[in-house]
């Protein structure tokens, strides 16, 4: 078509001036401090590096990591399943159902995970005859099952609230419009409300998984040897603080990986919202 006259080319605006303000200097100094800390940590680990320590405890750390990931993975999945009826009860108009779900969430969010785990393992353990009569002792006898139960019940409370909040964030009008088009309640929930709610819920879900990974470090009190338990064991043998630093680095790596996965999912599912 027609040629563009060279005169119509718009000059690129000049880069805005970036003076060294007080804030910028403070920022650079802080960043420098963090960098120094990081370099110091790496230097310490290099200096404190003991191949025999690594060789001896690496298998323990790996088995502990496996326990942590399995425990959190299973609890998050079971918790997600359990959170659906709880969220539904929380959203229901029925006062009794709503009240029950409210009390459940109130209790599990309001008390520490360590207390819940302790109560389920040692507390219920003292009711052995009653549990045996009900045929539940084989379940409660095992620390592993008790840990999964405690973590599932805890995360279900949080996940139910995430789900409820996300569903409530979708405006009432969507339900009404779907109803006007003749869609059933379930169809509306599945095809219209949930796809929008999940975008809202993604970040809190990611946070919940991260919190569970870190929260699971208390499980050694009921004799389940997770990453933290193995770390404490290694420390009690060596009295070497780098055992804890290694554990911190492993936890940090898991959390960083999870954060990136959540970011990636979010980019994928919000493509239609980007301009």
């Amino acid at each position: 078509m027609s040629e563009i006259a060279p005169a119509s080319v718009v000059e690129k605006p000049p880069a805005p001036p970036r003076p060294w303000t007080g804030e910028r200097i403070a920022g650079a100094v802080l960043l420098g401090l963090w960098l120094l800390c990081g370099i110091g940590l790496v230097a310490y680990l290099v200096a404190a590096w003991k191949p025999e320590l690594f060789q001896r405890y690496l298998p323990y750390y790996l088995s502990g990591l496996g326990v942590t990931l399995t425990l959190v993975g299973l609890s998050i999945v079971f918790g997600a399943l359990l959170s659906v009826p709880i969220a539904w009860m929380r959203l229901s108009q029925n006062r009794v159902l709503g009240g029950l779900a409210y009390v459940y969430v109130y209790f599990f969010r309001g008390t520490p995970l360590i207390a819940q785990t302790f109560l389920i393992y040692y507390g219920l353990g003292s009711f052995r005859p009653e549990l045996q009569a009900l045929g539940l002792w084989t379940f409660f006898r095992e620390a592993w099952y008790c840990a999964i139960l405690a973590f599932t019940l805890n995360t279900a409370a949080y996940q139910a609230e995430i789900l409820r909040g996300a569903i409530e964030s979708v405006s009432r009008g969507q339900w009404e419009a779907a109803s006007a088009l003749g869609l059933s309640k379930l169809q509306t929930l599945w095809k219209i409300v949930l796809p929008q709610a999940m975008i809202v819920a993604l970040r809190p879900y990611g946070n919940e998984i991260i919190l569970m990974i870190k929260g699971s470090a208390i499980v050694a009190i009921i004799t389940v040897y997770d990453l933290m338990g193995e770390t404490r064991r290694a420390y009690s043998r060596t009295f070497d603080f780098q055992t804890y630093i290694w554990a911190a680095i492993i936890y940090l790596a898991i959390v960083e990986l999870l954060r990136n996965i959540v970011d990636w999912i979010e980019r994928r599912i919000t493509v239609h919202l980007k301009r």
């Binding site: 040692y122 353990g125 003292s126 052995r128 006898r141 620390a143 009190i221 004799t223």
Partner: peptide
């Protein structure tokens, strides 16, 4: 105290 509880309850 904790191992005592678990020995008493049969774990």
């Amino acid at each position: 105290q904790e191992y005592q509880l678990d020995l008493a309850n049969g774990r």
